[in-house]
């Protein structure tokens, strides 16, 4: 939790900035993450399925077997944020919710018994990123910004493996303080409203979590791309 002090420092900077801010914007955003959850490895998979790298090593096939590839999990994202801009420097606080909507399911082969194993990976998380950086306004009509910071991330990763002789499922809930880098752009539709796009990279995993039958980390690492609509105010 030592990274909390950085969050507190950023919040203080954010609050300080409010009193001198030239522009405040509130935005809502929707998007997706092309790969969620990292490797989704766990101790049980390593020991019982010979898959030390989780989803990256779970797929096995052989002609004549009814397997289906466990594909990269894709997550849907919904979020909102508050941004303050003063003299081309911005400070931003937000919240994003990520939930797997496709991928992460399939059938593989247990190398020990040659049985077909139904595999399911799932993850949801939310993160509260606090970022700061440079926001450049071009001719009062469009803006590009680039920044970085940290986030508080909290979420649950779960897995399930079922075959004729196996029935294992586990769930891990944890938090992390990931690093965040972002680049975005927005176009002013009028004085108050803009439409934009944001690419964010979050990098961080939770400590190892033991649920009694399995142990794993919750991996929050990934790219987030979102489209946004924002309201702008001068204060």
């Amino acid at each position: 939790m030592k990274n909390f002090k950085y969050i507190i420092i950023l919040i203080i900077i954010l609050c300080t900035a409010v009193s001198y801010a030239a522009e405040v914007s509130i935005s809502a955003r929707l998007g997706y993450s092309p790969a969620v959850g990292g490797s989704m490895s766990s101790g049980w998979q390593t020991e019982n399925l010979g898959a030390p790298d989780g989803i990256n090593s779970i797929n096995r096939s052989q002609s004549g077997t009814g397997v289906s590839t466990v594909e990269v999990p894709v997550g849907a994202i919904a979020g909102a944020d508050l941004r303050i801009i003063k003299d081309s420097i911005y400070y931003k606080a937000g919240i994003e919710y990520v939930h797997i909507i496709s991928g992460g399911k399939g059938k593989t082969i247990d190398p020990a018994t040659a049985e077909i194993v139904e595999v399911t990976y799932n993850q949801w998380s939310f993160d509260v990123p606090l970022t700061a950086g440079v926001a450049l306004l071009f001719w009062g009509e469009s803006r590009i910004y680039l920044g970085g910071g940290v986030a508080f991330a909290y979420g649950t990763y779960s897995n399930s493996f079922k075959s004729a002789t196996l029935d294992h499922s586990a769930s891990f809930t944890g938090y992390a303080i990931p690093l965040v880098a972002e680049i975005g752009c927005e176009y002013m539709l009028n004085e108050r409203v803009s439409a934009g796009c944001d690419i964010k990279y979050i990098h961080g995993t939770s400590p190892i979590i033991d649920d009694g039958t399995d142990y794993a980390r919750v991996d929050f690492t990934g790219f987030h791309i979102t489209a946004s609509a924002a309201l702008h105010f001068n204060i």
């Binding site: 469009s142 927005e186 176009y187 796009c197 489209a227």
Partner: peptide
């Protein structure tokens, strides 16, 4: 996605 025109310079 979204185009951000940079006047005579191009597009991001």
């Amino acid at each position: 996605g979204i185009n951000i025109p940079l006047r005579d310079y191009g597009v991001f």
